[in-house]
């Protein structure tokens, strides 16, 4: 898992099977000190995040496992809303 900040929403009405209900958000991956750790990416939102929110993400196959149905072409999913990072 890794931290990220939601920076926007993504609308893509033409999409493959399995992604029908998926809500896409644009996320900037961050480290513990809120420094960018790579390019912004699109993640499926599983916890009703909104732009500006600090979130917890899971990547690769585990992202697909966080979705319903499970085996969908997803490699990033928002699995938690972060209240606090205490370092």
């Amino acid at each position: 898992m890794y931290l990220g900040r939601v920076v926007g929403t993504v609308v893509a009405t033409r999409r493959v099977e399995g992604l029908e209900g998926a809500r896409f958000l644009l996320v900037q991956p961050l480290d513990h000190a809120h420094r960018s750790t790579g390019p912004a990416e699109v993640a499926v939102d599983r916890v009703s995040a909104s732009p500006g929110t600090l979130v917890l993400l899971e990547g690769s196959r585990e992202a697909a496992l966080a979705c319903e149905p499970t085996f969908v072409p997803v490699d990033a999913a928002i699995v938690g809303l972060v209240d606090e990072v205490d370092v």
Partner: peptide, 14 residues
Amino acid sequence: VLGTVVATEKLPIF
């Protein structure tokens, strides 16, 4: 370990 993450709103598995 640098610290902890608090996230009350999360998937049930967590």
